[in-house]
Amino acid sequence: MGLPTIAPYDLPRADDLPAARAPFRLERARAALLIHDMQNYFLRVFTPDVAPIAPVIANIARLAAAARAAGVPVFYTAQEGGQDRRDRGLQAELWGPGMSWAPEHQPIVGALTPETGDIVLVKHRYSAFQRSNLETLMRARGRDQLIVCGVYAHIGCTLTAADAFMRDIEPFLAADALADFSRAKHDLALSYVADVCGVPLTTTQIVELL
């Protein structure tokens, strides 16, 4: 129970991305960026300063800078420590009690500290839409596309993308701004989203479109 220790692996490149079934085209005026669960608690299981996590942090920083410069809303998710067992629900059955109130657990990694105007949402379940006002905040800003980056690709990032699709919000996975338990799990997330609900793109492709 709990998170595994994650071995280094190389991130996918543009020519590794699966072809998407969806015809969605990312548009600056319609898009929002979601930086998913980039908290120290979740990142501590990676080997620091190597792939995947080091380039993922750098790529997310690129995406955030490009989004802010383009007037694209930037959202973050962050779980709270010390969750009551009743509030944590079935997640406790798979992952244990989760993060504690320890000061080193909850903060978003320093290189991605939210800036003025960014919105940080409390994360409750795999999907960032569950028990949050993410959809309402997006609709109020005229946004119906969501770029998803962060951890973990095959869990919260994929479920957020699928949930977005079911709310008629077009999802895009930033393929090399995601990290996961392994390259196999990472590729699984990209393939699943490409097959049923969204479009994987590289950081460079997204920055160019923004």
Rank of each mutant, 00 (worst) to 15 (best):
A128M: 11
F165G: 05
A7R: 10
A54F: 08
F42H: 09
L63R: 04
T47N: 11
G82F: 12
E170G: 06
V196I: 14
F165W: 09
R139S: 13
P73I: 05
V56R: 01
L34P: 00
D118G: 04
C197F: 10
R25A: 15
A162C: 14
D180P: 11
D180Q: 07
P200R: 00
Y152P: 02
P114T: 07
V122Y: 05
P4M: 10
D118T: 02
L90T: 14
A92K: 11
A102L: 09
A111I: 10
A29L: 14
V151N: 00
I53H: 01
T77V: 13
F172M: 04
D84M: 03
Q145D: 08
A66N: 02
E93K: 12
L11P: 08
H36D: 04
V148K: 00
A161R: 02
M166H: 12
E27T: 14
A20E: 06
G82D: 09
F24Q: 08
F172Q: 00
L188H: 14
L188F: 15
L137E: 15
S182M: 12
N133W: 00
T158P: 05
R13K: 15
R30M: 09
G96M: 09
V109Y: 06
A194H: 07
S127W: 00
A58P: 02
L209D: 06
L210N: 02
T204Y: 00
L188I: 13
L63W: 02
F42W: 06
R143P: 07
T47D: 14
V151M: 04
Q205Y: 01
P12L: 00
G98D: 10
V120F: 10
R183S: 15
I169R: 01
S127V: 08
R139W: 09
T202W: 03
P103A: 15
P55W: 03
M138Y: 06
D87A: 11
D16Y: 07
Q205P: 00
P12A: 08
A189S: 15
V45A: 13
P103M: 11
G156F: 04
V72Q: 00
R86T: 12
F181H: 11
R62V: 11
M1Y: 07
V72F: 01
E115G: 02
A175I: 07
A102T: 08
T160D: 03
I6T: 11
Y192N: 11
G2V: 00
V207C: 15
I6N: 08
A65H: 03
L112A: 03
R139D: 10
L90K: 07
R141M: 12
G142W: 08
R21M: 08
F172P: 05
L3Q: 13
K123E: 14
A67F: 08
